[in-house]
Write a protein that binds this DNA or RNA. Structure first.
Lengths: 352, 352
DNA sequence: CTGAAAGCGCTAACAG
DNA sequence: CTGTTAGCGCTTTCAG
């Protein structure tokens, strides 16, 4: 039974309590619950009953000390304010639940100069059987640390060049190519690309898709049409404004994520330009707001990626063989109202 | 030194390793690191050097087993997709970091019929010194469980009636009263309120502030002007649409959160109604999108709330005395462009 | 000021 | 099929 200790807190029931209640030994309880070894049906039933009567929950810390599985996975994430990241984390939450695992999420500051990322990493390593990593803004150093520690780990959605860790993600390059092709098909010839943060490999791959699509169409790439918006909405708005007030402004803008695309939306509105009448807009990620604002964008199969990442991690934990495979899922171009035919003539932006 | 074990994973350094390296006993190491008991300066220095040389990180699980502090706090959260919740969690993350604590976040499904919330709760109880709870959508049952377990816990931002747990939050009632007063001051007499989910106490308190402000102004409350939008944007849009197509439509709408207010924004646009020309809009939370859309709203001091919640929890952990105090912070009315003078005449909504 | 012993809750490994 | 023994890494006694 639960009994109170010196802290005044109720002490949780232990194997010993369950064993006594069921009239068997500790090991029988342990075996009955883990499924390892032979236990008679009768004993199993008695244990089951005792567990329920006492509300027994195995203590993970004791398991950790014995180097046994805890069925807890860890997730390292650089921030939660981005809707796209929130989406990824939520999907991983569902995926772990489906797989019968618990999930501990840790915020790992993306700041390279951060005092002790180590502490959190080892913390996770101790308790969790393995970790999932979604760190778009973190430098490669932290990843090398994890790599060397030998903890089973899988990168989710965000990939970094130069790592040997297994990765599950969407196909940035081909979908960016397709998005650009979509604009080309609509007759656009002057298409801008607003890049995201260089920390993440994402933006660079999307940019490669954009560049290659233009070149395949025989269009020269104009470096002045490729500003950087750091994946953030206010900066996206500013870059959009700068692009749109130019006399030779682009007729279409492809932003490396939806947040920036929504910023460009606002910039266009402020300048009295119609979307898609005067300028077509395409984003990336398909965050909820993209749907509300009728934004054409690229949708990743986030849930599928999350499920696969968890499965990959569990396999790695079970086989004890680290994989360095990279699984890529195709993305879907979601055509909505923000992209349309290229305008016949370029309307001047209204001074703002 | 680190040595590899059967799993092929590097085994972390232990107190024994540090003790050997420093030429002292395990206890001296333990004392030097925890600060409990007397250790000579010389021994302290040797230990410190050994710790650094070996990259030693104390194993929390072993501490848990000895019922000592882990300096890890847990956070139970019902979801992460809501920008407001993401904001709260991020702020708590910063607050714990400032307090020198680590944070483990757990997604606790808000579904009352969920299989095993217990598992996660006890999980947290074992590893964490205490837990922070932000569960707008979770029924009181889970809270009672936590309450009875005796684990130090503090409710952050979301309060539930009937709990004895300490609570730190914003003042919903008075700020909702002030927001409604703001609309009254602008000459509005027909003001609607879109309520959120009834799971959370938030919405009901905001609604009370709205009702009382109307009554204080001598305006009869019209139940048909108080639909429920469940805190979600699509439903907010639908409720907004239904309110705005009425011949006796309100000239102002106060939504219980920004998401729903943004939905109403879209509904107004679809109906050809200008904001604030034809209808004024006020939201609640001041999520980033509220700023982008120039929405008048109520801002909570989320970071202050988070810092105070963490401080309150740490005090509870240290003193071992559970508090049931409720600390409330005043909210700020942020007046932006979505609220303006009541229109002279009611323009009919465009059929849509 | 420092060390030795004991035990937190659990499960491999080895006997029955 | 079941029980006993030992020990994971740490810290709280209790003796030096």
């Amino acid at each position: 039974m639960s009994s109170s200790n010196t802290t005044g807190r109720l002490a949780a029931a232990t194997v010993v309590d369950v064993a006594e209640h069921a009239g068997v030994s500790r090991m029988t309880v342990s075996r009955a619950l883990s499924g390892n070894g032979y236990v008679s049906a009768a004993a199993k039933a008695k244990v089951k009953e005792a567990v329920e009567a006492l509300g027994y929950i195995p203590n993970i810390s004791a398991k950790v000390l014995k180097h046994t599985r805890t069925n807890v996975l860890g997730m390292l994430v650089s921030e939660l304010r981005s809707p796209q990241i929130a989406q990824v984390v939520s999907s991983v939450g569902l995926a772990t639940k489906r797989a019968g695992q618990d999930l501990f999420i840790c915020l790992a500051a993306g700041d390279p100069a951060d005092e002790s990322p180590t502490a959190i990493n080892h913390l996770l390593a101790g308790i969790c059987d393995g970790i999932l990593i979604a760190l778009p803004k973190t430098p490669a150093v932290s990843l090398q640390l994890i790599e060397r520690s030998g903890v089973p780990a899988v990168l989710v959605d965000y990939a970094k060049g130069g790592t040997k860790l297994a990765t599950v993600r969407g196909d940035n390059y081909n979908s960016a190519f397709a998005a650009t092709q979509h604009l080309l098909d609509l007759g656009h010839r002057r298409i801008a690309f607003i890049a995201g943060s260089s920390y993440s490999g994402q933006s660079a791959e999307r940019q490669r898709g954009y560049v290659d699509a233009l070149q395949a169409a025989g269009i020269a790439v104009d470096p002045s049409l490729m500003p950087c918006g750091e994946f953030e909405r206010p900066l996206g708005q500013e870059m959009g404004r700068q692009l749109l007030i130019r006399p030779d402004r682009p007729t279409a803008i492809f932003a490396a994520n939806d947040e920036m695309a929504l910023g460009v939306y606002d910039a266009a509105r402020d300048l009295g330009l119609a979307v898609p009448g005067d300028v077509s807009l395409v984003g990336f990620d398909d965050i909820p707001a993209a749907g509300y604002r009728d934004l054409t964008t690229v949708r990743e199969s986030v849930q599928e990626i999350a499920d696969t990442a968890v499965r990959t991690l569990l396999r790695q934990i079970e086989t004890r063989v680290p994989t360095s495979q990279c699984i890529q899922f195709p993305n879907e171009l979601v055509v909505r109202g923000s992209s349309g035919p290229a305008p016949r003539k370029i309307k001047a932006a209204r001074a703002s």
